[in-house]
Write a protein that binds this DNA or RNA. Structure first.
Length: 347
DNA sequence: AAGCTCAGCAACCGCGGCCCG
DNA sequence: TCGGGCCGCGGTTGCTGAGCT
């Protein structure tokens, strides 16, 4: 540009942090005379600053209607929604958030929300899942799905008679995280359930031993669904994501017929699947695992693993899982067993 | 206790757009 | 129509304090 910056014209003007005396002078002047001409304001207000610096200080800090402090969930949602819509138009976004400045929103985005999105595998610029980074993991997940779809569960290395429910839950958590991040890429294995509380039709008809714990895996059709980050964000807040685990208290308390005191939980995850409903592609594997779930503690009894009533719970469990000392071996098992050249392992 | 690292944030800088003579 | 000047925006910098070694 042909024009030199205004500050270069004002040799000797002060830069850097403002001191309270300067704030007082600026505030007093504007309250008395209004903003007017920013270029002439510093001289009139008795400040050795350039006009730009004064304007910035007033707009971002001294203005009486500035709202400071933590951003609320609602504000975060608004920012996400507007950023998806407008991009880095911080002033436009700020105009929808009374009391917030563009600078504050920009800083908040760059320091907090950007990081959050990256942790969730979302590209903060495009708001799309960062599938490129996940491709190796997607492969693993797809191998898992393939194994399930091929009906190998009952005798596969991946899931066998020694498979504990805890392992299944870990596996499900891994899968669920992948599905949340990339719902389109990850097929929907919606539920791992024991038969203990909700007898499936075969069981009710006496074709299965109702006393023997089973784990049912329901693979439902994967809907075409490519969410924006906005959708995912709201899903996390509102528990509206497809594929999120839902465990109702009724479900946990209903009990299997004739056993009101059972401690074996029905852990039903899925896309709005009603308790007791089993999809067409139901697979069954025997399970030696059991989990306790009392009405008081409706969350799963795997240490650190909780019932996923919301997407945020999934994230919470995910963090615990990553912190868990045993997760290294869990990952190793998972990767070993899903690799094409794998040998039999604990899963 | 000292040094180091890093996250958070206030402030700076440069550019584009608009207004006006 | 053009050029100069100002304002506002978005990217970037650098200071500060907290946490860690």
């Amino acid at each position: 540009m042909g024009r030199s910056p205004c500050c270069d014209q004002d040799k000797g003007v002060k830069k850097g942090p403002w001191v309270p005396e300067e704030d007082d002078k600026l505030t007093a002047y504007i309250e008395k005379n209004g903003c007017g001409n920013w270029r002439s304001l510093p001289k009139l207000a008795g400040l050795n600053r350039c006009g730009k610096s004064c304007r910035l200080r007033w707009m971002n800090y001294l203005r009486p209607d500035i709202r400071r402090g933590e951003f609320s969930d609602e504000e975060e949602s608004t920012i996400v929604r507007l950023h998806a819509l407008l991009g880095n138009k911080w002033s436009k976004i700020a105009s929808h958030l009374p009391g917030r400045t563009d600078n504050e929103i920009k800083n908040y985005w760059n320091t907090h929300m950007r990081k959050k999105m990256l942790q969730m595998g979302i590209d903060p610029i495009t708001h799309e899942p960062r599938t490129n980074d996940l491709s190796p993991i997607l492969d693993v997940s797809q191998m898992l799905v393939a194994a399930i779809s091929n009906g190998q569960l009952g005798n596969s290395n991946l899931l066998n008679n020694n498979t504990s429910l805890e392992d299944l839950l870990k596996l499900q958590l891994i899968h669920k995280m992948l599905q949340i991040i990339t719902p389109k890429a990850i097929p929907d294995i919606t539920s791992f359930t024991t038969n203990s509380l909700n007898p499936k039709p075969e069981q009710a008809a006496g074709q299965l031993d109702a006393n023997e714990p089973h784990v049912f895996i329901n693979q439902s059709a994967n809907e075409e669904f490519m969410p924006s980050f906005e959708n995912i964000w709201h899903g996390f807040e509102d528990n509206q994501l497809p594929g999120l685990v839902t465990v109702s208290q009724k479900n946990l308390n209903s009990g299997k017929p004739g056993s009101s005191t059972t401690t074996e939980a029905n852990y039903q995850a899925g896309t709005g699947m009603m308790p007791g409903y089993y999809g067409d592609q139901l697979r069954e594997i025997p399970s030696t695992g059991s989990i306790s779930a009392s009405p008081e503690t409706s969350r799963l009894n795997y240490p650190g693993m909780t019932q996923h009533s919301t997407g945020l719970d999934v994230l919470e469990d995910w963090e615990k899982f990553l912190d868990d000392e045993t997760s290294d071996s869990c990952w190793k098992s998972f990767l070993d067993l899903t690799s094409p050249t794998s040998s039999p392992g604990p899963w």
